[in-house]
């Protein structure tokens, strides 16, 4: 087992190293730096972005949009999901509708959001909130509608009030599924905000990325991408670790 883990990690390390190795070799063997800037140049750009404050001013805009969109989606998603889950008929009516809407790529509607909400942060907030509303609502429904009937009947027979039934039966049973929805929704929210910013915005990380590509500043483009990739990998690792701990409990 221990031995296996060593092999697994060394394979992962090799994968990682070979990407950077290939990058290094490619830039030193005449791939145009317009397409693939050398690693040290990207590193320098990352430092420039960091120290010039450009990173922060863009990040503040983006994080604000993410935060607003996510709060709206969480409140609306859990609210709608919980209300729908209260009746079997409502679940049967609404759940397939929501699933169907979730399957349609909402990106198609992004131009409509821009038309309605303008090119400022509002359109990104509305777009991202709409996108991550669906997984949150669907998982809330799945969580609260599929509580084992036996537990409900047993707790009622033992005289639980509806409040304590909610606290001690519904909540523990539905929480894992709902939290999965919240996690999926969170990453969709980040992707939607960044995507929206890349397509049409005045400021923010996505806009900065699109702008450096337009100006053919490839090193800066890579620096921005490196920051976003680092952030998303860190967040994902955190989510993964949290989930693993939840599984063990």
């Amino acid at each position: 087992m221990r031995h296996d883990r060593l092999i697994v990690h060394s394979i992962q390390l090799t994968l990682f190293a070979s990407v950077f190795g290939a990058w290094y070799i490619a830039t030193n063997s005449g791939v145009r730096s317009l397409l693939l800037p050398p690693t040290d140049l990207v590193w320098r750009e990352m430092q420039v972005l960091w120290s010039s404050g450009r990173l922060w001013s863009a990040a503040v805009v983006t994080l604000n949009e993410i935060w607003q969109a996510y709060s709206i989606a969480v409140i609306a998603g859990i609210g709608v999901g919980f209300l729908v889950s209260r009746s079997r008929a409502l679940v049967r009516i609404f759940e397939p509708v929501l699933t169907g809407m979730f399957a349609v790529p909402l990106t198609l509607f992004f131009p409509l959001f821009v038309v309605f909400f303008g090119i400022g942060p509002e359109s990104k907030v509305a777009y991202a909130a709409t996108q991550c509303f669906f997984p949150i609502a669907l998982n809330t429904i799945a969580g609260f509608a599929n509580v084992d009937e036996l537990y409900l009947r047993a707790s009622r027979a033992m005289g639980a009030s509806s409040l304590s039934q909610f606290r001690y039966v519904y909540l523990p049973a539905a929480l894992p599924v709902t939290i999965t929805g919240l996690r999926i929704g969170f990453f969709i929210c980040i992707a939607a905000v960044l995507g929206g910013e890349t397509l049409a915005a005045l400021s923010g990380v996505g806009k900065s990325i699109a702008l450096s590509a337009e100006l053919m500043e490839t090193a800066r483009l890579f620096a921005w991408i490196a920051y976003v990739v680092t952030l998303s990998v860190t967040l994902n690792l955190l989510a993964l670790a949290a989930e693993r701990r939840g599984d063990e409990e």
Binding site: D4, G195, I209, A213, V228, S232, N236, L237
Partner: peptide
């Protein structure tokens, strides 16, 4: 088994990256 255990987490992490930020890069290439 080893292949799955070493590649699966890497793929999951790559999958989690918001790819929209790569779009300008794709256009360049």
């Amino acid at each position: 088994n080893i292949g799955r255990r070493s590649v699966y987490p890497v793929v999951l992490l790559l999958y989690g990256i918001p790819q929209a930020i790569m779009l300008p890069l794709f256009v360049l290439v």
